[in-house]
């Protein structure tokens, strides 16, 4: 039995003017500890699918099973990281990273010190009492990661979490996130439109085709890339050939459309 089972998901958005099918026939199995990337042109429903898996949107059809249990009603099993950090500007960093524990009433001395430890591990020592605006973009995104991990979710959703950062910060954070997830043995799904990022971070890359969003192809990343950090993977000789392969598929999707 797989860890996460996505079974035949369809989703349609209704507006007054039209009914738009965002996702169609999505089925996918994810094993525990795996890192999956959803790659595809904008408007192919990647974020919608992520929201459905997180239980934030109810799909028109289909089911999501996490460890054989339907996703609805499961609380705090899934962590979600957004494009921007969305740290609450009126809360200190400490209040921000403890909010998940507070909401789910898991906040006690033990979980609190674990969260603060994690903050230290992320290289954010001594900023607990500061407000988010006093931090740089990279630091804020790291704090947001701590907030997400503090509730110890089984599954992590990363919705283009590096897209608002400058390139250098992005590369550093990719390594940090990848290391952290590896050491905790977390399962993660990353949404991105950056082919390089998808290859460098994932075990598998799922390529989506647009209107309606469908799984076009699934690429297994070569063993030698999986076992090294994202930064080293980008410099590995196997990187460019798989990059070319995915690039061509993406390109064919675009030309096929025209």
């Amino acid at each position: 039995m797989s860890f996460l089972a996505i079974k035949d998901i369809h989703h349609t958005y209704f507006t007054k003017a039209s009914a738009t099918t965002a996702l169609s026939e999505i089925s996918l199995h994810v094993e525990e500890g795996e890192f999956i990337s959803f790659l595809g042109p904008s408007g192919c429903g990647k974020t919608t699918l992520l929201s459905i898996i997180a239980g934030l949107i109810k799909p028109t059809q289909g089911t999501i099973l996490l460890e054989n249990k339907p996703i609805t009603g499961l609380k705090n099993q899934i962590g979600y990281m957004l494009q921007q950090d969305y740290l609450f500007p009126w809360k200190t960093i400490e209040e921000n990273i403890l909010i998940g524990l507070k909401l789910s009433k898991q906040l006690n001395e033990q979980t609190k010190s674990a969260a603060l430890d994690l903050l230290n591990q992320m290289g954010l020592k001594g900023i607990e009492k500061q407000l988010p605006k006093q931090l740089s973009g990279g630091m804020r995104q790291r704090a947001a990661l701590v907030r997400t991990l503090a509730t110890e979710p089984k599954l992590l959703m990363l919705d283009e979490p590096f897209s608002a950062l400058d390139y250098q910060t992005k590369l550093k954070l990719e390594d940090l996130v990848s290391n952290t997830l590896d050491s905790f043995g977390k399962t993660a799904i990353l949404v991105t439109h950056d082919i390089g990022e998808a290859i460098a971070m994932s075990d598998r890359v799922v390529l989506f085709s647009p209107s309606p969003g469908k799984i076009h192809k699934v690429f297994e990343m070569p063993e030698e890339l999986r076992n090294i950090s994202p930064f080293n993977a980008r410099n590995h000789e196997a990187f460019s050939s798989i990059f070319q392969k995915i690039w061509k598929e993406l390109d064919s999707l675009e030309t096929g459309k025209n």
Binding site: A54, K75, N76, L82, Y86, L103, S104
Partner: peptide, 17 residues
Amino acid sequence: DPNYLKVLQTFGATRLQ
């Protein structure tokens, strides 16, 4: 910003929270 609510909802927050 609805994304602030999204953050809270992923932690299972109620409407009151």
